[in-house]
Design a protein around this nucleic acid. Structure first.
Length: 492
RNA sequence: CGGGAUGUAGCGUAGCCCGGUUAUCGCGCCUGGUUUGGGACCAGGAGGUCGCAAGUUCGAAUCUUGCCAUCCCGACCA
């Protein structure tokens, strides 16, 4: 969208970091690779959680909580899953510290307190959950089992980025068990749809629904479905995944059930998750040079009222009108802040709330009150309008809806403008360097070719879109025949 | 773990090459006052182991060596 941002190129990282910190969403922490989510950022996460949780419950899921620690023997039970995550696991080996005899006042790990079996801090919870499901599932009557967990996980990545990749992050992970393959696949797709619905309709970020190639698949899954979003710098971001796990975990943890026909069968599994990474997606999809732009449906503050005082005697007059408006807005379920902080002047507040991305700002001064109007500014377009106080609350509610829709439309336009077809290798390489975005190109379907393209260009296959148009073509690298285009991009 | 850069007040910085008064400037912070329609102004004030350690020197933020930390680029990845 904003050319300024796109053209910023290598400064984009810096710009993103500064924005996250200055807007008060989060900060670096004392622990390398971890972040502190500040109240404003956490309020945003809570709003996202609330909506997602409602959607999960509407689709029949219940919340539960499983332990943070996974005994190593359980962790390694599903081999592919274990292998995939092994390189990024934090491991607990001891359970006690003691005074260091050589360094007074310092502590050391007590060698006598070594655990018999190491505990892996969960990078994902399939293992501990499926070990539990064995006890929960005996009969077809116990199925389907539809559980979600809100939790933190730890993945010890080499390089981290606020919200996009932190050592510890918050997420939800759904883990379901089904009697048939068909039912499990249906669940996988259903939850992908839930994610797409949330990201598009609440976060106003359009996504491409698709399926991952074998190389990009979740460790231990038969199929990984994903939603891919496009950021303003032309890079793609995996916003959520939903996995069809087949019977892999059921077999690894021996989870069998008796069918109506009294036959023992392994259950079919899915898992799906989205994380605080979505906040990164939100920032990179909508923000501009003035700061964040929050979609109204999940904005921590939807409307801010800034009073413009002229001398002390005007305060009670403005307060009265403003508080009445606050009450009206609240009655409509709108989150509103009346900023009476006298330390900052109106201009300062205008800039501050723009930085924080508050969708609607109302300025109210004596002049307005005399004319029975207020100044209403919308964050997404920065348009200002004088509106009558009569019926204002309803008008603001309508405006919030307009902003939500308009933000989505703008992001969708950008996304669609940045899906480009490439038919030759040269075209492909040139597009990556000049335009970026998603590149739709033919691929011969082999992991080898995919790997070569990645090595040569850093672009990966983000997904094979669902309901993809079938067309004859030749692989851009090898020239081998292909039946459909897949979406390539450089990704976060 | 490889390649590059940086470390000076809460944040951002000047000074370093070419060693020499009390370490520069801006923002922020505190006190008082005037203000308030796009990041106010005036006056006063607080805040520093110059990343750590050793060395060279009459003298080190500045030179040397070692260490530590952070960031960027690669491998890894939701």
């Amino acid at each position: 969208m904003s050319k300024e941002i796109t053209s910023r190129g290598e400064d984009y990282s810096q710009w993103y970091n500064n924005l996250v910190i200055k807007s008060g969403l989060a900060d670096h922490s004392a622990v390398k690779g971890c972040m502190v989510i500040k109240p404003y950022g956490y309020a945003l996460w809570e709003n996202m959680q609330k909506e997602l949780d409602k959607m999960f419950k509407d689709t029949g899921h219940e919340n539960a909580y499983f332990p943070l620690f996974v005994p190593k023997s359980l962790f390694e039970a599903e081999e592919k899953n274990a292998e995939g995550f092994a390189k990024e696991c934090a491991v607990v080996t001891h359970y006690r510290l003691k005074n260091n005899p050589d360094k007074p006042g310092k502590l050391m790990v007590d060698p006598a307190a070594k655990l018999e079996e190491e505990l892996v801090v969960r990078p994902t919870s399939e293992a501990i959950i499926w070990n539990t499901y064995r006890d929960w599932i005996q009969s077809y009557r116990d199925l389907p089992l539809l559980i979600n967990q809100w939790a933190n996980v730890v993945r010890w990545e080499m390089r981290t980025r606020l919200f996009l990749r932190t050592t510890e992050f918050l997420w939800q992970e759904g883990h379901t068990a089904h009697a048939t393959k068909e039912e499990a696949v249906e669940e996988t797709v259903k939850m992908l749809d839930v994610y797409a619905d949330f990201v598009e309709n609440y976060m106003a970020v359009p996504v491409v629904k698709g399926i991952k190639t074998a190389n990009e698949r979740f460790a231990g899954a038969e199929d990984t479905y994903c939603i891919e979003a496009l950021m303003q710098d032309g890079k793609a971001l995996q916003a959520g995944t939903s996995h069809f796990l087949g019977q892999n975990f059921a077999k690894a943890f021996d989870v069998q059930f008796l069918t109506k026909e009294n036959k023992r069968e392994y259950v079919w599994a899915t898992s799906w998750g989205v994380s605080t990474r979505l906040i990164g997606a939100l920032i990179m999809a909508h923000s501009d040079d003035q700061g964040l732009v929050m979609p109204p449906k999940i904005a921590p503050i939807q409307v801010v009222i800034v009073p413009v005082y002229k001398g002390d005697e005007s305060k009670p007059i403005i307060d009265e009108k403003a508080l009445a408006l606050v009450a009206e807005l609240k009655a409509l379920g709108i989150t509103v802040k009346y900023d009476t902080n006298d330390n900052n002047r109106p201009g300062w507040k205008f800039a501050e709330y723009e930085l924080k991305g508050v969708p609607v700002r109302i300025a109210m001064g004596l002049r307005d009150i005399e004319n029975k109007v207020v100044e209403v500014a919308r964050r997404d377009t920065k348009a200002k309008e004088v509106m009558p106080m009569e019926g204002l609350a309803a008008a603001v509610a309508q405006l919030l809806e307009d902003i939500q829709q308009s933000m989505y439309n703008k992001a969708l336009q950008f996304r669609d403008d940045n899906i480009t077809e490439a038919n030759t290798w040269d075209e492909f390489v040139q597009l990556l360097d000049t335009k970026a975005g998603f590149i739709a190109a033919h691929w011969d379907g082999t992991g080898e070719t995919e790997e070569k393209i990645k090595e040569a260009t850093k672009a990966t296959i983000r997904c094979i879109p669902l309901n993809n148009k079938q067309e004859e073509g030749k692989c851009i690298l090898t020239g081998q025949p292909s039946t459909q285009r897949v979406l390539f991009a450089r990704a976060y």
